[in-house]
Design a protein around this nucleic acid. Structure first.
Length: 267
DNA sequence: AATGGGACCTGCGCGC
DNA sequence: TGCGCGCAGGTCCCAT
């Protein structure tokens, strides 16, 4: 699913291919993904604007079009962006650029969102968002856990606590650190929180290097799959032997989300 | 503060 | 083969 590494991959690739381009035309195939404004208003406000900056915050992409005009894209579960010469299946909105290419917003489940706002920092999700893990020292990461009694895995994926981590990377991080996903945060000593930090940072960086994980519909900007999926250690490995201790990986619902873990070596 | 449930939405894999 | 069903997950919202 699009989590921090997938969205960061897209941002890096957009910076090389879309930054500085002018949006000449917008083709709206499915207006449901455009929130807050009508298709007509959306088109009239965005057409003929140049992409001045592309920012990522957590799992959110922000295109700066003018000082008080930002295009905010959230891919949610099944969204992806695809730069191509033609329209593709499940692509709901196409931004035709001045170099003839089309930036397609694609989304099979139509839960993704495109918003047009004058101040992106004011969005509730952004305003309440926790720190970026890749901009955080180990010391400050450990501090976040003060007085937190929630289960570690749902806590890691709480966007108000920490930005950009979702169901998959939260599981990978606690597996790497040898911590059970249902351990209460305040029952984990600082040294182990430090291990979660080291694991998480390493996993996020490595995934960005490999263009993210294409577990479901996610693709890189050029349509290729992300290559981190092959390096996943627990996610979707139910019934298979643990890479560390050979015990059988279990799947259980924790915090209302499917969670894979090793019952033997995650304590 | 934390947790649990439902809603949004559709493609997919399953059982019969 | 074809149908119905449950499931997947990011975020929001409501209830406890």
């Amino acid at each position: 699913m699009p989590e921090l590494p997938e969205v960061e991959t897209i941002r890096l690739q957009l910076s090389r291919n879309v930054l500085g381009k002018k949006i000449k035309d917008i083709v709206v195939d499915d207006a449901r993904v455009i929130k807050g404004v009508s298709k007509t208003v959306f088109k009239s406000k965005v057409e003929n604007k140049t992409v001045k900056n592309i920012i990522r915050r957590g799992k959110v992409l922000i295109f700066e079009l003018a000082d008080d005009l930002y295009l905010v894209i959230h891919l949610r579960i099944s969204g992806w962006l695809f730069l191509s010469k033609t329209y593709e299946k499940f692509c709901r909105v196409g931004f035709v650029l001045n170099n003839g290419k089309i930036l397609n917003f694609c989304d099979s489940r139509v839960l993704g969102e495109i918003k047009l706002i004058d101040d992106w920092t004011n969005l509730a999700l952004i305003k309440n968002m926790g720190p970026e893990p890749l901009g955080l020292s180990k010391q400050n990461f450990v501090k976040l856990f003060d007085k937190k009694t929630a289960k570690i895995k749902p806590l890691l994926m709480d966007q108000r606590f920490l930005a950009g981590v979702g169901n998959m990377y939260a599981q990978e991080a606690v597996f790497c650190a040898g911590i059970s996903p249902q351990r209460r945060a305040d029952k984990i000593d600082k040294k182990d929180i430090g291990r979660i930090y080291t694991c998480l940072i390493r996993i996020l960086r490595k995934s960005i290097e490999r263009g993210g994980s294409s577990v479901d519909t996610y693709r890189q900007l050029n349509g290729e799959k992300g290559k981190y999926k092959a390096l996943l250690k627990v996610y979707q490995r139910q019934g298979k032997p643990c890479f560390r201790c050979k015990a059988t990986i279990k799947r259980e619902s924790i915090g209302g989300r499917g969670t894979y873990y090793c019952p033997k070596c995650q304590k």
